[in-house]
Nucleic acid binder design. Structure first.
Length: 548
RNA sequence: GGCGCGUUGGAGAAGCGGCUUAACUCACCAGCCUUUCACGCUGGCAUUCAUGGGUUCGAAUCCCAUACGCGUCACCA
């Protein structure tokens, strides 16, 4: 078979050669330790945590080493593509503070190794494909979908390995004349790789996260170009990452199984292999069973979930970093004020077993992150979130900025600052009682206090309260009320002899607290009274007294 | 079914042949502090590293087998 003739028949319009591309995309001028990484999301309209997770690894590896991190859009599947999805990816990454040196951007693209959208690289793929045909390493396959699935049935029945290989690879042996006739007849075809492997050998591939992997060599004649001339992931990955001079391929472990295909292709083309970094999958508990986070079942997989819940990008970064390199937490404890990007991230330290996604941990980290911010910073970011997700609350915040910052800051000063806020959504809930428009009762009164007693306590409080009192005088009055109704003044006394008292001073305080804030958990009550002010306090307590 | 990856407490995990009576963080529990709730502090939470064999003076750490979990086997990525 004259492969050159075949390549002309298959790609009559392609005149560029691999050499042309090598010249157009020369090796990058970077120091030897600099890593070049990328993420390659497909524009399906759904940007998930896994995208961010891998992006973080790539970003750290590249920028920590003085290298390049770029964004490539893997849009080779037109069936799955969704309108506006490219912008969604770019916006999500930028929201989470992932910055690219090259690649697709909102207005066009930047960088010298583009185009960065695979659909626009058709000529490159075809010219490499043409070269493979010339070398006898690729051939057209005319098998229809039905034939392939029939073949699969036979393979299952015969207990043979699935796929297009060896004796099952019918189109492998087509003659030039047969091919020519089929093409003349307008039969559609895909281009398959003629795998030099038999599956009898093992190959060794180094993985930066997993160490040396020993795997069976590839023997499948997998598809390089689909019938529309667009490459499959496998081919696009090899061509792009070579020509874009990627040094480290960071991707999920679901690619491990097809790794032998990729390295075989790299070897066939005489190109150096990149260093692979296969990250562990993110899982969650589903009843008793662990499973991979699923797009359909798990809202927390979507990046938009974290935006909507009002988690800070910073918190998500730090959470992911603890999952990625567990020594991050210790580093953070030792360096509370450094930017998380100063942490020495390492691929070797990454876990290679599936990781359970832990929302509790994210919440804890998020509390710490917010606790470190100033009231002004919180106000600004909180307001920005409210403007997208809770306009009513945004209006309240804007109406009186000083008041907003004041309530945000209650109890946050001193050596032991409160950590009440864990997300902006939670902050709306937490701060709502400071605003009459949002005030509501979330918690009940202490269960051990009868309704009648509660009325009396509140009435007495209203009578005694003087807003000019300082904190200690104010509290003395609470004590007087407690004593008057026979409550234990020390919680311990009540604990020791619960039968001797109707309750302790704690219960008295809590009755007043619930009347004023609508819940049992709040910052310092006296401060709250000062901030809310006499008329509104009287109104709230008065309403509670009337109600019963 | 083939191939591959994995298995240390409720979760993330450190440890990678003796320093481990298994670090650290989250969760949980108890106590302390406190006018409540938080915050903070103290302590508890794996006599054991999926199971069974083996190597070794010595194993969570090395080897083998088994089990279980996960991933993957498309003209999807």
């Amino acid at each position: 078979m004259d492969y050159t003739k075949l390549s002309q028949l298959l790609f009559p319009e392609i005149s560029s050669t691999p050499d042309d591309w090598e010249k157009k995309y020369p090796a990058r001028d970077l120091p030897p330790e600099a890593k070049v990484t990328r993420i390659g999301p497909s524009p399906t309209g759904f940007v998930h945590l896994g995208n961010l997770y891998n992006a973080l690894v790539g970003e750290r590896l590249a920028h920590q080493s003085g290298g390049v991190f770029f964004l490539r859009i893997e849009d080779t599947d037109n069936k799955r593509e969704v309108e506006g999805a490219v912008d969604a990816v770019i916006n999500a990454m930028s929201f989470f503070d992932v910055n690219f040196d090259e690649g697709a951007t909102i207005d066009g693209e930047k960088g010298d190794y583009g185009p960065y959208c695979q659909r626009q690289r058709k000529e490159i793929y075809q010219s490499i494909a043409k070269h493979l045909v010339e070398e006898g390493l690729a051939y057209p396959c005319f098998c229809a979908e039905e034939e392939l699935s029939a073949m699969r049935e036979t393979q299952i029945a015969a207990k043979e390995n699935f796929g297009y290989w060896g004796k099952w690879a019918h189109c492998r042996e087509l003659t030039y004349t047969e091919i020519e006739q089929k093409i003349a007849a307008g039969e559609p075809f895909v281009l398959r790789y003629r795998s030099p492997g038999s599956g009898e050998k093992d190959i060794t591939v180094e993985d930066a996260i997993r160490g040396n992997l020993v795997m069976q060599e590839n023997y499948q004649d997998f598809v390089l170009l689909k019938s529309d001339g667009i490459p499959t992931y496998h081919f696009a990955h090899v061509v792009d990452d070579h020509l874009m001079r990627t040094t480290h391929v960071v991707r999920g472990e679901e690619w491990l199984a097809t790794l032998p295909m990729h390295v075989q292709l790299f070897d066939s083309l005489g190109w150096p292999r990149p260093l692979y970094c296969h990250t562990a999958v993110l899982e969650k508990m589903n009843g008793e069973q662990r499973r991979k986070l699923s797009k359909r079942k798990d809202p927390e997989l979507a990046l938009s979930y974290y935006q909507a819940e009002g988690y800070l990008p910073q918190s998500v970064w730090e959470y992911l970093l603890t999952v990625l390199n567990s020594n991050y937490e210790e580093w953070r404890l030792a360096n509370p004020d450094l930017n998380c990007r100063e942490f020495p991230f390492s691929a070797e330290k990454m876990s290679n077993s599936g990781t359970l996604f832990d929302l509790d941990k994210l919440k804890d980290i998020s509390k710490e992150v917010i606790a470190k911010m100033s009231a002004a910073e919180i106000y600004q970011q909180f307001l920005a979130w409210c403007e997208s997700y809770d306009e009513g609350f945004a209006a309240l915040l804007k109406a009186d900025r000083a008041y907003a910052e004041q309530i945000i800051d209650i109890g946050r000063d001193g050596d032991r600052p409160r950590k009440d806020l864990l997300s902006w959504k939670a902050a709306v809930e937490f701060l709502s009682f400071y605003y009459d428009e949002r005030f509501k009762h979330d918690d009940d009164y202490p269960a051990n206090i009868t309704e009648g007693l509660r009325q009396e306590i509140l009435t007495a409080y209203l009578a005694k309260q003087d807003f000019a009192d300082d904190n200690s005088v104010w509290f003395e009055k609470i004590k007087e009320i407690a004593a008057h109704f026979g409550f234990a003044l020390k919680p311990k006394d009540y604990k020791k002899n619960p039968e001797q008292y109707p309750g302790s001073i704690v219960d008295v305080s809590n009755v007043i607290r619930v009347a004023i804030t609508g819940r049992q958990n709040s910052p310092d009550l006296w401060t709250i009274c000062q901030v809310i002010g006499e008329p509104r306090i009287r109104q709230r307590i008065g309403k509670e007294i009337e109600m019963s």
